[in-house]
Structures are given as C-alpha cells and as structure tokens.
C-alpha cells in the first residue's frame, strides 16, 4: 500500500512539474540556459564589476531595445517570414519624433504618438503586401528597409536632430524607483508577447499559419489577418525602440538602428526558433538576446576591441545553431 501511495505522490509531483511553465521553460531551453550560465560564470570570475548592480542594469538596458524588436521578430519568423525593415524604422520613428519636438515645437506626447504611428504605418504596409500578395517577406521588407533609411536621411538632411529636453530624455534614460524605464517597457512587452503566444487564440493561429499555411486555411484561420498583425506589431516595436534610443541620445539620428534587424534575428535564432517557421518561443528569444547582450558587455569589460566582438558574436551564433542542429538530428534518428 505504501508503495502505491508513494507512486501516486510521485506522479503528482511529476504532473505538477510538467504543468509548471517554469519547468517546461527550463527543459526546452536547457542548452542555451547552460550557455548563458557558463558565460556569466566566466565573466564573474574574470571581471569584478560584472555582477555589480550598475553593470547588470546597464546590460539589461542595452538588451531592452533589441528585445522589443526580437519579440515581434519571433512571431514574424514563426510565421515563416522575416522583417528586415525594423532597423530603418528605428531611425525613421526617432527622427520624426525628434523633428516634431525640435522643428515644429510639438508637445512630447504628440511627437511620441507620431513616432509610434510611423512604426504602425511601416508595419501595416509590410503586412498588407505580404498578406495580400505572393511577394516574399524578404523582398518586401528589404524594400521598406531602403525606403525608410532613405526617408530618414531626406527628412533630416543627413544631420542628427538634437532635442535638448529633460522630459523627453526621461522616456529612454529615466529611472522609476531605481529601475531604468526601458527595462520597465521591456517587462511589459515580454509579458504581452508571451501571453499572445501561449495563451491567446491568435498565438495558436500564428503557430498554425507558420507550420502549415494550407492546413491553417482549411481550418478556417484567416491567414492574412494573422500575417498582417505580426508585421504591424513588428513595426510598432521598432518604433518603440526608435523613440527610446532617440531619447537616450538626446537626438533623432538618421543612422540609428543600423544592423538592428540582424541582432534581433540573431536573438531569435539563438533562442531556438526555426527559420522555416512553425516552431519557436518568446522565452528562447529572451535568453538569446541576453546571451548577445552579456557577450558584448563582457567583451567590453575585458577590454576586447569592438572589431573582434563582431567575430566572436558570429562564431557564438554558429556554435549555438550547430549544437541545436546536432540535437535535432539525434532526435530525428530515434
């Protein structure tokens, strides 16, 4: 009898564990979690300041803008697409926000709303073309990427727009109870994204359309609405990142966000999302972005030149994806 009892208790523990989101999160991302811990451990040993509160907040602040974009990029990539236009959208929303304050004397609220609107327009444009035509997402967003970069240069004449306003600066560089504001946005955005992907119908529809668009259509899912939403969200997140960056730098810069799309894609891929669509998690992307952020922070702390940092970043991405490939191949043969 005792045996039977302990058995049911054991199975209770097992069901508790398997229904526990944290447990699943750990299990699914075991590989990169170990990587993240190892990386942090090494940096703790070699750099005394790595674990200081100041440095941790610094890392998170740098990770934040990448993660806004990467959360939306995760949805886009699960849908089998890609959004290359986010980097230029960062610039465009930043200069529009800055320009409205500096040139037109608009209030900060109006300027920020206009900046967000820029992101929505770009996202809607991408989403409309991708959901209603058969032009590949790569081509559509490659075009908007160039258009938006060009538009930012045209709007500013190639010069940064300086905004000397402390209240504008608060948006991207302020603190609430000792926590940098961008990190607060980050927490909100990650929570919203996780809820969409794991709790809502929309999330399941995203996995369906990404996994098998024809089957999704047969199942009564409106594929074009799902696609439209993802690119719209991506545009909006790029705008948030653009405004935060402009605020932190006291200026809207037409060169802002160059290569931001690649960092976001790198975070998504490191997080285990498949480039062929259908599979992936926001949680993985968060860890992926942390690895990239901590890596460049650590290399800075160790005094390694930024030239070398690119090389290291590239190698780390390759190793991570290769390990994932080995894991999948092993599962496949079983």
């Amino acid at each position: 009898m005792n045996v039977a009892k302990s058995k049911t208790e054991k199975s209770k523990v097992v069901t508790f564990l398997t229904h526990n989101p944290l447990f699943n999160f750990g299990k699914e991302n075991l590989g990169i979690l170990i990587g993240l811990l190892l990386l942090s451990l090494i940096l703790t040993i070699f750099s005394p300041v790595f674990l200081s509160k100041h440095n941790i907040l610094n890392v998170l602040r740098q990770v934040a803008t990448n993660l806004y974009i990467a959360c939306a990029m995760t949805m886009v990539i699960i849908l089998g697409g890609i959004d290359l236009s986010v980097g230029s959208t960062i610039a465009m929303s930043g200069v529009v926000t800055g320009g409205l304050i500096a040139f037109d004397g608009q209030s900060i609220v109006v300027a920020v709303l206009a900046g967000l609107f820029v992101g929505l327009v770009v996202g809607a444009f991408n989403g409309f073309l991708i959901s209603r035509t058969t032009i590949p997402p790569f081509i559509v967003t490659l075009s908007t990427m160039n258009i938006m970069r060009g538009a930012s240069y045209v709007y500013t004449g190639g010069q940064p727009i300086r905004v000397m306003s402390d209240s504008f600066n608060f948006i991207g560089a302020g603190y609430v109870r000792g926590i940098p504001v961008p990190i607060i946005y980050l927490v909100i955005i990650v929570i919203i994204s996780v809820l969409i992907m794991s709790k809502s119908k929309l999330g399941r529809h995203i996995y369906a359309v990404g996994g098998n668009p024809v089957a999704a259509r047969f199942s009564g899912i409106k594929n074009n609405r799902v696609l439209f939403f993802a690119y719209l969200f991506s545009g909006l997140m790029a705008a948030v990142a653009g405004i935060v960056l402009a605020s932190r730098m006291f200026s809207g810069q037409p060169t802002a966000g160059q290569g931001a799309e690649m960092d976001a894609i790198a975070a998504v891929v490191l997080g285990g999302t498949s480039m062929s669509g259908g599979v992936g998690k926001i949680g993985g992307t968060v860890i992926g972005a942390l690895i990239i952020g901590i890596l460049s922070n650590g290399l800075n702390l160790l005094g390694i030149s930024s030239f070398w940092q690119y090389i290291v970043k590239g190698i780390v991405i390759l190793i991570a994806v290769y390990v994932d490939f080995l894991k999948k191949r092993k599962e496949g043969t079983n």
Binding site: K199, K201, Y207, G211, F218, G278
Partner: peptide, 24 residues
C-alpha cells in the same frame, strides 16, 4: 500532410485547433 496536419505540434494542439473558442 499538406492540407491538414501541423506536424511540429502536439496531438492536443492538432485536435483542438478548430475548437479554441470553447476553452480560450
């Protein structure tokens, strides 16, 4: 294969994808 299955998803996901309204 091409018109019905979501092969990378679970049995549960595949069975309930048309009935999400009932529990979400």
């Amino acid at each position: 294969k091409s018109e019905a299955l979501f092969p990378e998803q679970s049995v549960q996901y595949n069975i309930t994808i048309k009935s999400l309204d009932e529990f979400i």
